[in-house]
Every structure is written in C-alpha cells, then in structure tokens.
Amino acid sequence: AGVLMLHMRSNDWMGRLGGDEFAIFLDHTGLDEALHIAERLRRALSASTFAWDGKRFNVTCSIGIARISGEQVDASDVLRSADRACYQAKEDGRNCIRVYRESDQLMSRRRDDLAWVAEIREAIVEGRIVLHAQRIEALHGPATLSYEILVRLVDAQGVVYPPDRFLPAAERFGEAVSIDRLVIAMALRQLDDHPAHLQALDLCHLNISAQSIANPDFCSHVVNLLDITRVPPAKLCFELTETAAIGNMTRAREFIDEMRRRGCKIALDDFGSGMASFAYLKTLPVDVLKIDGVFIRDLANNAVDPVLVRSMCEVARSLGKITVAEWVEDRALIDRLHELGVDQAQGYGIHEPCALDELIAATTTHKAAENF
C-alpha cells in the first residue's frame, strides 16, 4: 500500500478490497494515461522487496483496467470488469496489465465463468445440485449393478445443466472441491437411505477432481464421511483422471492408499490419453482402468484402435485390473469389445444417464419382483 501511494497522483483514490487486492480510481484519465500509470505502479512493485524472518521477498502484481463510461453507473459492474481483466492478467503469466474489453473473447469467457461461479455457489446453498447416474454393463459373467455418479446443476428456472457447462468454471475458480464434497455426501446419504438398493449394488463410481486431490484436507474429509455412513467401502470406487494423479502425485498416492486401506476401489479415468499412461501403473495402485473414449468411438472404423484397446486389456488383465470402455454409443460395439477383452462398457449406447433417485427406484422394484 505504501509503495502504491508513493506513485499515485494527488487526485487518485485507492482502497484495499481484501487480502492482497486493491482498487484504484483514476479521476478524469484516458486509457493511454491509465496504462502509463499502471505500468509505473507495476514497475515500482516489481522493484520493491520486503524482509521477513531473515529473508527478503520480491513483490509483483497483476493489474486489470476497466474504463468507466457514461453508461456505467454501478460501481459493482466497474469492479467486476476490472476483476475479469485482472484474472486475465494472472492467466497470461502474472506481473502484467490487461484492459477489459467487452468484445474480447477471453474476457467474455471470464465473464461467463464468473457468472457460473456465482450460480454454483447459490445452487449449493439452495440445494440445486442434483445427482444422476449412468450404468456400467459387465461384458463377462453375470449381470451386476454398477454405475457412475454424474452431477447436474438446476438453475432457478428449473433448467438442468450437464457438468461440461459449469465444471470448467468451478475448476478454474476453486469451487470443484466444494462440489466433490457435496456429491460424495449426497451419494452416501442416498445409498444409506435405500438398504435394498445398496444390497444389490456392486459398485458406485464417484469422480474426484484434480483440485480435490491437491487439497490437503480433502482426504480426511472423505474419511470422516466414510466413518459416519453404513455404506460398505467395498461398494465405492473413486475415479481419478491421469492428469489429476500426476499433477500432484504425492497427494494422489496418499488418497489412493488411504481409500484402498479402507476397502474402496480406485479407477484411473481416461486411461491411455496421456503420454505415459502405462508407466503410471507402476506407481499408482489402481483397481480399474477406464479406457479413454477416443479409442472406443471409432473402434469399428480403423485398424489402430482395436490393437491399442487389446493391448490395454492384456496389460490390465496381467496386473489384475478391470477394464471399462467409455463412450460406447452403439450397442453394436459390444461383441467387438468382448472379443478384445474389455470387461465392462459405459456410454449412451448402454444407458442414458437418469436421476439417481429413478435408478434406485427402478432397481429396488426389480429386486423386489425377483424376490417375490
């Protein structure tokens, strides 16, 4: 704050928004002059250091500039625009300046992302995060009841949004951990409330984001949830993407080891999409390999994908792991997948996702009819 004040004009105004965020109002200033002032502030901070506990630290800043036009009369709108530009500066490498422009595609995406973050937070508070499920079909042996939990967001008007609409914003702005915690708690509660369905269930798959894996408190939070539920851990499978696992290998291994010690299973999602997928099987003790859909969707149209899928299955079988083919959009692929050695299949050709409540009701009714 002191450094900034030294390099501001007498008619400028500065206030601390919170944390390390400051707002500066440049009175009667054109864009070119604002950029010149911002660069002066950036250089001043970059040249400054502070001492703490016998060490010296450098300081840098990201600056976002928003013009105040005659149409903008709401201070909150002005701050939001500057905030979007500031986040863009951070994404572009930090220690730089960006100007908010309504027509800029990156700024537009930032605006949309921030709107989604606000919607996500409201949806969590108002109970508008709902669970869907997609069945996973066994290709060998007797039929089993397994499915993956999928999250949906319902807006205030009742429109249901799939995860690809809001999860990218959640991951970009740190809300993925909140969603993961809520989804796991909701799924365990629903399974706990339906013992007949739980008895018939073979495996419930739950996705874990890279953000959650990196969070130091997430593992203990899941352990606490497992301690207070009657759901047998052996009926749960936590899915981690290869990207999430290698992004924080130490925490990923800690999470995997603790969940497996409890009796849960671990699946490596999108397997084969990374450059070193097979190498990670040496360090990540997973139980299930979910073969990335890029190898499945064109399986019948080229000679390469079948070879790759067969090799994945042979490696998995040698290591005692189960394989699941993702993105199975056509049941005509079932015989080919069976021939290649795939153990299970998942996709719209197998089952179109439905509300978890509906799946529980349907399987419970079917089980009761069988017993009768």
Results as ranks from 00 to 15, higher is better:
V3I: 15
S10D: 08
M14V: 15
L17P: 10
L31E: 14
D32Y: 04
I37Y: 00
R40L: 05
A44K: 01
A47F: 04
A51Y: 11
A51C: 14
W52F: 15
K55R: 15
K55V: 08
F57G: 11
F57T: 11
F57H: 15
T60F: 02
Q72E: 14
V73W: 08
D77E: 11
L79Y: 12
L79A: 07
S81E: 13
D83K: 04
R84H: 12
Y87F: 15
Y87C: 05
G93D: 08
N95G: 04
C96R: 08
V99R: 00
S103Y: 07
D104Q: 05
Q105R: 12
M107R: 01
S108L: 11
D112K: 10
D113I: 03
A115F: 10
W116V: 09
V117I: 13
R121I: 03
E122G: 06
V125Q: 09
G127T: 07
I129D: 08
I129V: 14
V130G: 03
V130R: 09
L131Y: 04
H132E: 06
R135P: 07
E137D: 11
T144R: 15
Y147L: 12
I149P: 01
I149M: 06
V151E: 00
V151Y: 00
Q157K: 14
G158S: 12
G158L: 05
P162N: 07
P168W: 04
A170G: 02
R172I: 08
G174Q: 07
E175W: 05
R181A: 09
V183F: 07
A185P: 07
H194F: 01
A196E: 14
L198T: 12
L201Q: 05
L201E: 06
I208W: 01
A210E: 04
Q211I: 03
N215P: 02
D217M: 06
C219E: 11
V222D: 03
V223Y: 05
L225K: 10
L225Y: 03
P232H: 02
P232W: 00
L240E: 04
T241H: 04
T243C: 06
A244D: 06
R253L: 15
E254N: 08
R262I: 10
C264V: 04
K265W: 08
I266A: 05
A267D: 02
G272A: 05
M275G: 09
M275H: 14
S277P: 03
S277Y: 03
L284W: 07
P285R: 07
V286R: 00
I291G: 01
G293C: 10
R297S: 09
R297I: 14
D298G: 01
A303C: 09
M312T: 13
E314H: 10
R317G: 09
L319A: 03
K321R: 15
T323W: 04
A325W: 06
A325P: 09
R331W: 05
A332I: 13
R336C: 13
E339K: 12
E339L: 14
L340C: 10
G341N: 06
Q344V: 05
A345V: 11
I350Y: 07
I350K: 09
H351Q: 03
P353M: 02
C354R: 14
A355F: 10
D357N: 13
A362G: 11
H366N: 15
K367P: 00
